[in-house]
Structure formats: structure tokens, C-alpha cells
Design a protein around this nucleic acid. Structure first.
Lengths: 205, 205
DNA sequence: ACAAAAAATTTCCTATAGTATATTTTTTGT
DNA sequence: ACAAAAAATATACTATAGGAAATTTTTTGT
């Protein structure tokens, strides 16, 4: 477990930073209102913002205050964030897909583990699936205990894995066992027993 | 593959809708500025907003316009959305974790598949891991082809699965093969051959 | 403890957001 | 094609956002 978590996360963050580039609420509001088949007066009634102001905002003749935006959001029964984030600008796979055959993942070696990034050719995924052969037999073999704000789902494909955490007792997982945890608490994996330990895990940001 | 996708999605959406309830930019900006050790003049220089205005905004004496917020976001080198979304309010697992032992998932039967929700006791996860025994042998057995805006990662644990899609040719996946796809294009699974087919999949919103 | 410096707030002013009403444009029915 | 109705925009005004400079508060050094 040492595919460079930091890097994976930064990559995603970088991307998010410049998404929603044309942060124009005008067209966004117009699209939303028309999408519901509302007139300016409907929108006005729902939000408490005058129709004229609404019209000016939609056409970019006026930059609404945040409190106005909040009132509009309430009118549309949505939260400010989703009001501001245009789904059309959201990075999406749009029907794309990627297949990785057995043992054909993209190698990504790191200190204590032998990782294979799965479906790595698809960019801007919301999850990162990885197949890892756990090498470490002892916690001492880890110099750093990785930590991010991601969530991790892992399942043991073969062998026995021990999950060590700074806030829990060590936990043994056998073939077929699953675990879901928050990577903001440091966790590392070691293997146990004679068989080699293979873990399939997926992480999100 | 027929764990009620709609329901899973709606659940998550519902949750997102009322996140960020105290949408007060004032404290948020104060926290951000102080976090960087900036004075009001620093913030003013970076954003182009006068220190006095900045002060008033922080104390809620003034509701900034969206264009002001955009300028502030540029000053802080972040996008408007992450400026507005207080990470402290973000739903997080905060070190929580959940384990599911082999064959101990929460059953979730549906038309053509035998699903087990894994780690189902943890709420507000960003991913939903599911273990499914694919029953259908023919596409005809599906009355509806599920479709959402989620992304799906799946891997075949045993047997042979054929992935049918409205926009791709059918694709055979064998034990150990992985696939990542966008569920906005309809996909259904059937099994092939004598062995029973088990799929492990994870979906995100 | 005091003065000097730096940071935050207040004041007063101008620019612009937002309202009510009038006008123009578009849609609908005959 | 025309009139009536409905929707969108323009106008004139009020309320408030935002800037420059003055004032107060907090911090720092001696």
C-alpha cells in the first residue's frame, strides 16, 4: 500500500481547480429556469427576487450578491453549490470505458508493495482501482504511513492481510473479506502466512 | 446487476442537498485568510478587493456579489466552488471503518441478480461496493437497462461475464478482468459457461 | 508601561445591485 | 393577419456593495 497517494490526490485536485472555468451564473440560471419551463415571474415568485433583476442576472447585466444567489437557490430547491456548478462543465466519461485484463495493469512500484493501476488509460475517473501484492511482513518496513482525505474500499483476493491503523487494533482479513475506511486515519497493510497476499482496492477523492 | 441504482443515487443526492447548511462565507473567508497568515491588506492585494470591504464581508456586514467572490477566489488561487464549500462541513467518515466478512454482505435481491451490499453499515460513503452473483444468461431477461450518472468499476471474481451495452459490442470478461465505465450509457451483465459468475463492483455518484 | 507600528474597523462617499412600474417583444387564439 | 395575453426588457428610483481615507484597536519592541 504505497502507490503514491499524494500524487493521485493532487492530480485530481488540480483538475477540479480549473473545472467550471466559465463561471457565468447568467446562462446557468437561464438554462435552469427554462429547463423547468418557468417564466421570469415564476422564478421571481419562487425566489423572492424581482423578475427584472432575474432577467438582468441571466443576461449578465448584473452581478448578484451571494445572498441573492442563496435566495434563488432556495427558490429552485437546491443548494448554492449545485446551483453554481454547471453539470455540463462537469468532467464526465460520457459513455467511455476501459478494460484491464488479468495481470495487465499498469505497474506502479513503491517501497513495500507491488501495485497495478487498473483501467489507468481512462483519465478523470472519480475512483482509482488498484491491485496490490502486499510484500511487507512487518509494520517496521513502512517508513511513512500514508494519509489522505480519500475513502478506501479494499477486498482481499488471496492470502491473509493484516490492517494496521493508528486508531484501531490490528485486524486480520482473509480471502473474500472487505473493508471500507477513511484514509484520513493512517493505515498500512502487512501480509501473514505462507501464501502471497493480493488486495484489490479502490480509492476516491 | 440490478441493485436499485436509482435509490442509491437519490439517497446520496438527498444528502448532498442539505450539506453546507450554514452557507456563511464570512467565517469561511476569515478562516481561509487566517489559515494562510494573511492580513486584510494581504488579502486585499491578492484579490483586488479593498481591505475594508473584505473586513465587512468577513463579519457578515456585507453580502458580496458573485463577481467579488470570483475575484477573491482568484486571490486565494482556488475555484469558487471550493471557496464556498467549507471542508469542515463536508460529510466525512472521520476515521470510521467497516468490515464485511466473506459472504456476509447485506442481501439485496433484485430481478436478475443476487446482490450483497458490502460494508453497508457505514453511511454517507462516496463509493458503494457490491458483490453480485450474475444469474441472467440472456439479455432478454432484463426488462429495464439501468442508467445513472454514476461511474462503475467492476472486476470478475469467478466465472465469465458478458457486458452488454447500448453503445458497444458485447464484451466477455473472465476471472480477474476489470472494467471501468460510465453508467450513463446503459449496461447489463449476463453470465456465460458452466461456472457461476461472481462480480465485485463499486459505484460512485 | 509606553510609544511606535501594524492590523482591523468606521466613516463617508460613489458605483452598482435590486425593486416597482412602464414599455416592448413574443406568444396564443380566432 | 390581427388583437389580446403573456413574457421579457427598459426605465427610474432606492438600497446596498465596495473604495479611500480617517479612526480605533491590537501587536511589538524597548
Amino acid at each position: 500500500m504505497n502507490v503514491d497517494l499524494e500524487n493521485l490526490q493532487n492530480h485530481r485536485r488540480q483538475f477540479n481547480a480549473d473545472s467550471n472555468k466559465s463561471d457565468e451564473i447568467g446562462p446557468r440560471l437561464h438554462q435552469l429556469r427554462k429547463g423547468r419551463g418557468w417564466t421570469l415571474q415564476d422564478a421571481s415568485k419562487a425566489s423572492g427576487i424581482s423578475a427584472s433583476a432575474f432577467s438582468k442576472i441571466e443576461r449578465g447585466e448584473l452581478s448578484p450578491t451571494i445572498s441573492t444567489i442563496q435566495r434563488i437557490a432556495r427558490g429552485f430547491e437546491m443548494d448554492v453549490l449545485s446551483l453554481l456548478s454547471d453539470p455540463d462543465e462537469q468532467p464526465t466519461l460520457l459513455g467511455r470505458r476501459s478494460v484491464t485484463r488479468v495481470n495487465e495493469g499498469k505497474p506502479h512500484l513503491s517501497g513495500n508493495c507491488d501495485n497495478q493501476l487498473l483501467c489507468a488509460d481512462l483519465k478523470n475517473k472519480r475512483m482509482t482501482p488498484i491491485r496490490t501484492r502486499v510484500v511487507a511482513r512487518d509494520v517496521e518496513e513502512y517508513d511513512v504511513w500514508p494519509k489522505t482525505d480519500a475513502e478506501i474500499y479494499m477486498t482481499v483476493l488471496s492470502g491473509t492481510v493484516v490492517v494496521h491503523s493508528k486508531i484501531y487494533e490490528p485486524l486480520e482479513l482473509h480471502e473474500g473479506d472487505s473493508m471500507y475506511y477513511d484514509a484520513s486515519a493512517e493505515h498500512v497493510w502487512t501480509r501473514e502466512g505462507p501464501e502471497e497476499a493480493i488486495v484489490l482496492w479502490v480509492l476516491t477523492s
